[in-house]
Design a binder for these strands. Structure first.
Lengths: 258, 258
DNA sequence: CACCCCATTCCACATCATGGAATGGATGCC
DNA sequence: GGCATCCATTCCATGATGTGGAATGGGGTG
């Protein structure tokens, strides 16, 4: 080979190729053969085999009984070590978001069937939310949760809420599947999600999903309904959308086929 | 350079080195400088820099404002894609464990403050547990949970249970911190953990931690107290220990310093 | 202000990755 | 059951490519 491909991501060739192999495996719907990986990664079969052998000896891929290959457990370790980085990366963005809106800014991800807060920046107001990082809440009754659900295929949403149920927290909590689905449609239409005291009376929360993040993710601001008025909505949504876009860039170094 | 190191993990040199760099970063307590990574990974600074530049352009590492390096968000993606593999890998081991004990075999990991069941193999008995994969339970009241807690530093255990609380499920549920800590000590001493109807009346569960797994992990068998008798304990523990050791090998391709 | 440490870049060298071809085993088709 | 095909794996000659020492430059400290 040796075509002159313009703008091939520069760097150590074999390392770039090794990650192309990993990404090909990650994209494959099931365990993949060498030939399969080779064609997905656009590499010579013998090169692919050598890279797979190297990765396998390191534990980053593994070989199944029928000579196919799959991602290996060592990646789980690296992934779990990298996860806290997301909060660090998001820090400055949340800070800016808090500065712009003067409300508490949150970053949350879908974890299993619950939504986990992974980072936050508290507003300077004294009256503010108190959602420590690490807390998990039900998606149907939170702004971030609904923002995340709005990005999922409807079937996955219904399966999820049937597993979790839709317990009522306040008078406004959505407790029927149809009400939730309608709310999600409305969220998609206008581009943001509102939680209007559905989790806790008097607390309003505006949330926007972060597209392209490694796991389903959303940002939000939350505060007393009195402060987060309809009048302040446009500015808040603007700030949230900007924040979501920045997070998309920062977190979304998605190693999928692009 | 060019020492003759015996048994250097074979494979494509630069790929092996790239992962040494990633592992060095994963081990570093905080963001690391090039020199730092170079010494941890035992590579020339210029080589280290080139590899970091390559990894950074791919999103697997990132550079902080102060020219230090950290793991990047792309690893989160690969890690989350690799996670389901753990259940696949564990499958045959759980199968063997079920065959040996004739009880339902479970694999669970610590996920946040809860314990998540990630794989199971149901026993053929009709009277059996019904814990679908994906279910999350509180650690203080489950065999797998206590087995996992027993591997954590005591401070982390107390912080965790203070966050989750220790709700009572049955008369036997441990509801005081001191009772739990004593139980964990006893577990460590004898090498396995018992949940004797603490989650559900009449259900007994024997669990053993899987050392060296990417995330805190335990295996267990569970069934009616009548079947899991004291007499059958030694054989069950034997089978569980074997299973845990096999899982350690399979999952524990720990890319940490060896 | 001077020194040093460190990140980054450069470059000549030969090591090392490369991919085509060869091998052998498995699977499917006739 | 035998043949053909496909595919994983190994081998090897070739030169492209990774390597590390040295040079450069910026930042911080004494």
């Amino acid at each position: 080979m040796g075509w002159v491909v313009p703008q091939e991501p520069s760097g150590v060739q074999s390392v770039v190729r090794a990650f192309r192999v990993l990404e090909a495996l990650a994209d494959a719907p099931t365990d993949a053969t060498v030939a399969d990986v080779a064609s997905r990664a656009e590499l010579a079969p013998s090169t692919t085999h050598r890279l797979l052998a190297t990765l396998t000896s390191l534990g980053y891929t593994r070989q199944t009984d029928d000579r196919r290959y799959a991602l290996g457990p060592a990646l789980i370790t690296l992934g779990s070590r990298a996860t806290p980085q997301a909060a660090v990366i998001a820090g400055p963005v949340l800070e800016e978001l808090e500065r712009a809106t003067e409300e508490t800014a949150n970053l949350a991800v879908l974890d299993g069937d619950l939504v986990a807060y992974v980072a936050q920046r508290a507003s300077r107001h004294h009256m503010r939310m108190f959602t420590e990082a690490g807390r998990r809440v039900l998606p149907h009754a939170s702004g971030v949760g609904k923002a995340i659900l709005a990005t999922l295929p409807q079937q996955r949403v219904t399966e999820l809420v049937r597993r979790t149920g839709m317990p009522r927290f306040t008078d406004s909590t959505l407790t029927s599947e149809s009400a939730l689905l309608a709310d999600l449609r409305e969220s998609r239409r206008r581009g943001f999600t509102i939680d209007d005291g559905e989790q806790e009376v008097g607390v309003r929360c505006i949330a926007v999903a972060v597209p392209g993040a490694p796991v389903p993710t959303a940002v939000s601001i939350s505060g007393p309904a009195a402060r987060i008025s309809d009048a302040s909505l446009p500015a808040a949504v603007e700030a949230l959308t900007t924040a979501a876009a920045r997070l998309s860039d920062l977190l979304g170094a998605s190693p999928s086929r692009g």
